[in-house]
């Protein structure tokens, strides 16, 4: 079902949705990025259309809403464990097709990999409705088309929105929301559009030809010199899902505390360090190789699609100007030409 809203109309819709949902969208936080006087574009709660930042790619993805950077697993008091009870909060997340597809990757790990579902992820994920933002021109570093994550299927979203000069056109799939939409807008025909060509194109290496011989290639030693292991590529990535589990004791009472998890990144020191100090991937170039292979090969071997969605955030945030898309293309060339 397609609808057309005026700006006012859409704001009224948001207002009514806000009764039941916490609505997250990319926003602009004035002067809040790391460098002074730079704005931070990131996800936060919104109440109106004007707050949504559509002109610039967000530095972080919507991942942190469903997989919080730090999340309490349970509290303990005198050895007894208490899990925080589920909340009834429901969420609407505005995001582009690449980021919607990133959630498919997270779903694989948290809900399908291993013998059990991750209940912490699941209890948030179940309460999310996706509002996909139509994205037909992308940004400079995007390569979603190459990663086949430029499109979404109708079942992947509750609503699909086209932001126009004087309002919003959209399609609603979610029956629960259809009433809210239809009561405030005129019905139109709506056909979602997707970007068909990015400025950056990536050629994935031929899976058949990709052997471990390439692990020794000097391609990676270049990154040993360039990478500084800051982990920004991991934290900005919408599909990186690794975490570390830690305990803390509350200062007041040494008998109570919490076990929590927080994001981990394969580029950051300590990721493979075992108790006693042995480290399986000390070299930064090896970390780049490991991440690259995970994003464009290993994940795909385990599941049906590659992990990387081509959002290009890792390129945008790397302080050493390491480009992931460039790395993939270099790898493909090496494979084509023979290692």
């Amino acid at each position: 079902m397609g609808f057309n809203f005026s700006e006012n109309g859409f704001n009224q819709l948001l207002e009514s949705l806000n009764q039941d949902y916490q609505i997250y969208a990319p926003v602009r936080k004035k002067n809040k990025d790391s460098f002074s006087a730079n704005d931070l574009i990131t996800y936060d709660l919104i109440k109106s259309l004007e707050e949504i930042e559509l002109t610039v790619k967000s530095k972080y993805s919507a991942k942190e809403i469903v997989f919080p950077i730090r999340e309490t697993l349970f509290h303990f008091v005198e050895g007894e464990q208490f899990i925080a009870s589920d909340t009834d909060d429901k969420y609407i997340i505005f995001l582009r097709p690449c980021d919607r597809n990133a959630f498919k990757r997270l779903d694989k790990i948290f809900l399908e990999n291993g013998p059990e579902e991750d209940i912490y992820y699941k209890r948030l994920r179940e309460n999310v409705k996706f509002f996909v933002i139509e994205c037909t021109s992308g940004f400079d570093s995007c390569f979603c088309v190459s990663m086949e994550s430029n499109t979404v299927e109708a079942e992947d979203y509750a609503a699909f929105l086209r932001f126009e000069e004087n309002g919003v056109s959209c399609e609603v799939n979610d029956q629960d929301l259809a009433v809210e939409f239809s009561s405030q807008a005129e019905e139109i025909k709506f056909e979602p559009q997707f970007i068909e060509k990015n400025k950056v194109e990536v050629k994935l290496p031929d899976r058949e030809k990709l052997t471990n011989e390439v692990f020794e290639h000097q391609l990676w030693t270049e990154y040993s010199q360039r990478c500084i292991a800051c982990g920004r590529c991991n934290t900005s990535c919408p599909t990186c899902s690794c975490f570390t589990v830690k305990d803390v004791l509350y200062d007041e009472n040494k008998k109570s505390g919490e076990r929590f998890r927080r994001w981990a990144g394969c580029h950051i020191d300590g990721f493979t360090e075992m108790a006693g100090g042995h480290n399986f991937r000390e070299d930064y170039g090896d970390r780049m190789r490991y991440k690259t292979m995970h994003k464009i090969y290993d994940f795909g071997e385990r599941f049906d699609f590659d992990m990387c969605v081509g959002c290009g955030r890792c390129d945008d945030v790397c302080p050493e100007y390491i480009s992931f898309s460039k790395c993939i293309n270099k790898l493909s060339t090496i494979i084509e030409e023979g290692v």
Binding site: P115, F271, F280
Partner: peptide, 15 residues
């Protein structure tokens, strides 16, 4: 033997 934080195929350290 690898670093592991979950044992459940989620945390990624042992991959």
């Amino acid at each position: 033997e690898r670093k592991m934080h979950c044992g459940l195929g989620k945390c990624g350290h042992c991959k």
